[in-house]
Structure formats: structure tokens, C-alpha cells
Computed example of a mutant assay.
Amino acid sequence: MPRPKKSAKAAAVAYLSRRDHAEKELQQKLVARGYDEQEAQEAVAFCQDYNWIDDARYAERTLSNGIAKGWGLLRIRQELAYKGIHEAIVQQLLEEDEFDWFGHAKAVALRKFGATEIDTPKEKARRFRFLQSRGFELEEIRYALNIDDEY
């Protein structure tokens, strides 16, 4: 791979000017573009010094964006882990969070399926799978779909 023309710091700033990144995500992106590990680490540290990159802030934004997209907590946690956010940051964010995940699951189900009743086991399974794919936990799904029996 040919040597990139601009410095790793300039590339990192350019990436951050487009959207917020997690530290690990930005470092991986720089390495993938041809910068060596040391240059990428220095560029990420440079951005941290100016508070242009912050994993805690990134986690907060991902949480609020995930909620807006209709994701459940499991899906949001998966996204944060994929982006390289440390589990301690995620844990602290969720301890401070007082969001009603049960109500959110119900709202997502209502937005997708309307107020129609579940009339067949096939329909029940379809709705269950949809909410599971969105990252909701079993109890939240059962609450959202008003299911009392075991699945």
C-alpha cells in the first residue's frame, strides 16, 4: 500500500470533522489507510489532548441514536463493543441511564405493527423475531407484545 500523502494527525482530524468516532475505531481506520500503528496511536492521542475524541461522549451519542433508531439495549451494547468502547464506560453509562426499556419496546412494536391483535402463532413468532433482532430482551418483548405464556 502506498504511503498516504497527509499526516496521520491531519487524516484523524479529517475523519473527526465528518462524524464522531470511538478511539479504537479511529485508530483502526488510520491503520487501514496505510499509517503504521505508532502514527495512528499518536494521532489518536493528539485528538484526545484537544478533547476531539472521547469514548464516553461517543457512547452517550450511540445510546441516544440507538434509542432513536428503535434499538434495544442488547443491540446498543453490541454496537458499542463492536466500536471498541470499554465495558467499564458502557457500564457507567447504563448505571446513570433511567430509560424505560419496557415502554420503548412497546412503542417500537406499536410503530411497526400498529394496534392489531396477534391472531396466529406464526404472527406471534414474526413479531417476536423482529423485536429480538432489534436487541430487546425476552421480558421486554413479552411485555411489548402482551405475551403471558412461555415462548
Results as ranks from 00 to 15, higher is better:
135 G>R: 02
49 D>F: 00
121 P>H: 00
95 E>I: 02
23 E>K: 11
115 A>V: 06
67 I>H: 01
30 L>P: 14
29 K>W: 01
148 D>T: 15
113 F>T: 03
97 D>S: 07
50 Y>M: 10
68 A>N: 05
2 P>L: 13
15 Y>H: 14
37 E>A: 15
73 L>S: 13
98 E>K: 10
98 E>G: 09
149 D>S: 08
44 V>M: 05
5 K>F: 04
2 P>M: 10
110 L>S: 12
68 A>S: 11
92 Q>D: 14
7 S>Q: 11
14 A>Q: 09
129 R>A: 05
88 A>Q: 07
146 N>F: 03
148 D>L: 10
15 Y>V: 04
117 E>D: 11
16 L>Q: 05
6 K>C: 03
28 Q>P: 07
144 A>H: 10
18 R>P: 00
8 A>Q: 05
112 K>T: 11
18 R>W: 11
37 E>Q: 12
119 D>E: 11
124 K>C: 06
128 F>H: 08
65 N>D: 12
39 E>S: 15
95 E>R: 14
3 R>V: 11
13 V>C: 05
3 R>W: 03
35 Y>D: 08
67 I>A: 01
33 R>Q: 15
51 N>Y: 10
75 R>N: 13
64 S>W: 01
49 D>P: 00
63 L>H: 01
80 L>D: 02
82 Y>C: 07
48 Q>E: 14
73 L>Y: 02
12 A>C: 10
114 G>F: 07
149 D>L: 08
134 R>V: 05
84 G>T: 05
100 D>Y: 04
75 R>I: 01
126 R>E: 15
143 Y>G: 02
84 G>A: 08
113 F>D: 06
128 F>N: 06
118 I>L: 05
87 E>M: 05
109 A>S: 14
91 Q>H: 11
71 W>M: 13
19 R>V: 11
114 G>E: 04
14 A>P: 00
68 A>Y: 00
53 I>P: 09
13 V>L: 15
135 G>T: 06
57 R>K: 12
120 T>D: 00
21 H>W: 15
94 L>T: 01
95 E>M: 09
62 T>I: 12
145 L>C: 06
129 R>Q: 13
47 C>M: 14
142 R>F: 07
35 Y>T: 08
89 I>L: 04
67 I>N: 01
107 A>M: 09
19 R>W: 11
123 E>Q: 14
91 Q>N: 11
99 F>V: 04
126 R>W: 02
46 F>W: 14
107 A>H: 06
46 F>C: 05
101 W>P: 02
125 A>Y: 12
57 R>Y: 11
70 G>W: 07
8 A>K: 05
53 I>Y: 08
112 K>S: 09
149 D>P: 00
133 S>M: 06
107 A>I: 03
22 A>S: 13
116 T>G: 07
17 S>Q: 14
116 T>D: 10
11 A>I: 07
78 Q>I: 02
148 D>S: 09
39 E>I: 09
44 V>A: 03
132 Q>E: 15
2 P>I: 10
12 A>D: 10
25 E>H: 04
51 N>E: 15
123 E>S: 07
10 A>Q: 14
101 W>H: 02
44 V>I: 13
100 D>Q: 07
56 A>D: 06
11 A>E: 12
29 K>A: 15
112 K>F: 04
16 L>E: 03
44 V>L: 08
149 D>K: 08
4 P>Y: 13
10 A>G: 07
